[in-house]
């Protein structure tokens, strides 16, 4: 069995100092849903885990001025029912709910989902869709005892499957974004092999807003598990902006997204299935956030999806 030590940090400063203690390779432990599986599989690249899951400052969901701030150690269960999130970023709650199993959502954290950087993760596409920023404490001073607080777009931290760009010895503190205004619709769609306890084969996070005449004023679209990393599909968004929504336009958007995926990731064994599924999911997401008949699109549709 691999042998390593355990230490619990009570504050951000203590955590960063512990993570940067000389002579030791330390790993962050939060919900454990990824790390414990790796440990069992024989992961031995560290001497010590630093448990950050009990640090009060990392466990809050709150407004920071006009921005919505979610602590990195907030669990999926806390996100899925928090009023600020249900109001300002409902699709983030939907993404955490899509995991379905209480045992996992009670432990798994938002920061862990980003830092693990799995291509099939559920929440990073939503954070990227929200143009969320990560707040990171990086080591500074003797053994990192006086951490520096930096900001970086979440999209810039995700570097491909299981690769992140969080600075060495740094710690994710929180995520911040502008909550969506009520006129902006949002949706999270997930295609998995089962309904529960499954990773995303494909997921889509999207937001959309129409002007008074019904034309597309704003649209954001992110596909997870399709590209080398989650990113806004600016090419598709630009094609949609300013147009009146129509089934033909959405079908065209789906085809464009499909071509982008194949262009970037090449032909794979799954491409024949995945490209068609992606196109259909893009159409469905756009229908949800840019309804052709807004008066008929009700919350009941969303409830039936949850």
């Amino acid at each position: 069995m691999n042998s390593f030590g355990y230490v619990r940090a009570d504050s951000v400063e203590e955590a960063v100092a512990l993570l940067n203690a000389p002579g030791l390779t330390s790993r962050v432990l939060a919900g454990g849903t990824d790390l414990m599986v790796a440990v069992r599989a024989g992961e031995t690249s560290f001497d010590r885990v630093v448990d950050i899951s009990m640090i009060p400052a990392l466990r809050r969901i709150e407004m920071n001025g006009a921005r919505l701030r979610i602590g990195a150690a907030v669990t999926f269960s806390e996100i899925m029912r928090h009023p600020l999130i249900l109001q300002g970023a409902r699709f983030l709650a939907d993404a955490t709910h899509s995991v379905r199993t209480m045992q996992v959502t009670n432990a798994a954290t938002l920061g862990g989902n980003v830092a693990n950087a799995a291509a099939a993760a559920d929440t990073p596409p939503v954070l990227v869709c929200l143009d969320a920023e990560a707040i990171i404490a990086t080591p500074q001073g003797e053994h990192g005892s006086a951490p520096l607080w930096e900001r970086a777009p979440v999209a810039s931290l995700l570097r491909g499957h299981l690769k992140h760009a969080i600075p060495a010895g740094g710690l994710l503190i929180a995520f911040e974004f502008d909550p969506l205004v009520p006129e902006t619709r949002n949706t999270f769609l997930k295609l998995g092999r089962r309904n529960a306890l499954t990773i995303s084969r494909i997921n889509i996070a999207a937001t959309g807003r129409q002007d008074n005449a019904g034309a597309i004023a704003d649209v954001r679209l992110v596909a997870g598990a399709c590209f080398s990393r989650p990113r806004r599909a600016h090419e598709v968004e630009a094609m949609l902006r300013g147009q009146p929504p129509s089934a033909a336009l959405f079908a065209e958007a789906g085809q464009l997204m499909m071509r982008l995926m194949v262009q970037e990731t090449g032909q794979r064994w799954s491409t024949e299935y995945k490209s068609r599924a992606l196109a259909a999911m893009v159409e469905e997401a756009l229908e949800n956030v840019l309804p052709l008949h807004p008066e008929m699109a009700t919350e009941a549709v969303r409830e039936s999806m949850r």
Partner: peptide, 29 residues
């Protein structure tokens, strides 16, 4: 399964159900 998929090891930790195979023992201190 010991990898957090089957729920056979479920316990309540501070009143919330978790998979005990995914909790590091000293975390319950």
């Amino acid at each position: 399964c010991a990898i957090g998929e089957c729920g056979a090891c479920s316990v309540l930790l501070d009143g919330r159900v978790v998979n005990s195979c995914l909790v590091l023992a000293p975390q319950v201190n």
